[in-house]
Design a binder for these strands. Structure first.
Lengths: 171, 171
DNA sequence: CTTGGAAAGTCAACAAGACTGACATATTAT
DNA sequence: ATAATATGTCAGTCTTGTTGACTTTCCAAG
């Protein structure tokens, strides 16, 4: 969280300054504080509605990829079906999510948001996007490219690939 | 998670392209997946030891700022004292954390890690730092600067200032 | 010097959201 | 016909957060 210090020398050490334990530790702390800020706005909305982060995540990805199946959503979220089922049950009971039997494979359930669900999603993501957009524009386009690149590299290649495939499937 | 598309035109719209909803949504998803990856390595170690993320966080900040008080730690972590107390109790009972009565204000408790606690902290942070360092070196110094800058901007100014003060107090 | 309030600790009850394990049902694939 | 898959559900556990109530210790201002 401290101010970064750029040395003026042209030594080889300078090239790797961003890899010192101290720099890396600062990155770790930034991730902690930034993630908390990142979830703060939707959390505030959710706590008035008897929903939690789990509902937000489900709604986000159903909105993003309409008609995705339960298994695909499980894969994205990385939780157990029992855990997800509780959340989906509530969302369906409250009329935010629809579940249709699959056309091709009738065992599957294709999930979509109802209009009410879409409004809910928009309310949450508007709050979250506002913060993100502000951070983006304060930091500038080059910083955003760097931000994205470091986060990408942090994700395991298998996860990255798995998510990439799912995202393009539901174009 | 999709590939970024840079337009070749020089229009004014280009300047703000990275602020489209789609770009911002991709950033949001990156935060989600990257944070999960970010905590995965320490989580794996913790689950064999009957500890959780809360213990990791406490140990991290006690290591980072030896002799910080319970109140300061509460402020950093943003949880209730009851929640933190349970965690600290376990860590003290297990001989990882020491609590000394404050010199100036005897109501305060100054927290430090025992040698055992330091070893524990190192085990966890080595795992986490390895991923971070790898992401940093793959992405490069410029990307790291951008990464840090965007995360900084995402944090509320008050939090940023609060943490900055604490960090420099325990230099 | 007393008293008010801050810092810390503790107890109890509760909830969200994760987990495991077991089992049921429908449907598809072999 | 049988095996495997996709989904749903019941029951129980764990971590980590919450509130509320209460005590002890201690500093500082009246």
């Amino acid at each position: 969280m401290q101010q970064e210090k750029y040395p003026s020398s042209g030594s080889r050490g300078e090239q790797l300054l961003f890899l010192t334990d101290d720099q890396v530790r600062q990155g770790i702390e930034l991730m902690f504080f930034a993630y908390r800020a990142f979830t703060a706005d939707p959390d505030r909305i959710l706590e008035n509605l008897a929903y939690g982060r789990a509902h937000h995540r489900a709604v986000h990805f159903i909105n993003r990829s309409p008609n995705l199946t339960v298994n695909e959503l499980l894969d994205i979220l990385g939780v157990t079906k029992q855990s997800l089922n509780r959340v989906l049950r509530q969302l369906m009971d409250d009329g935010l999510v629809n579940s249709k039997i699959g056309r091709i494979d009738r065992r599957q359930r294709n999930l979509t948001l109802t209009e009410k669900g879409q409004a809910f999603e928009r309310e949450l993501s508007d709050a979250q996007r506002a913060r993100m957009r502000k951070a983006y524009s304060s930091a500038g386009a080059d910083a955003v490219a760097g931000f994205r690149s470091v986060l990408q590299e942090m994700i395991d290649p298998e996860t990255r690939e798995k998510v990439r495939r799912l995202m393009e499937k539901h174009r």
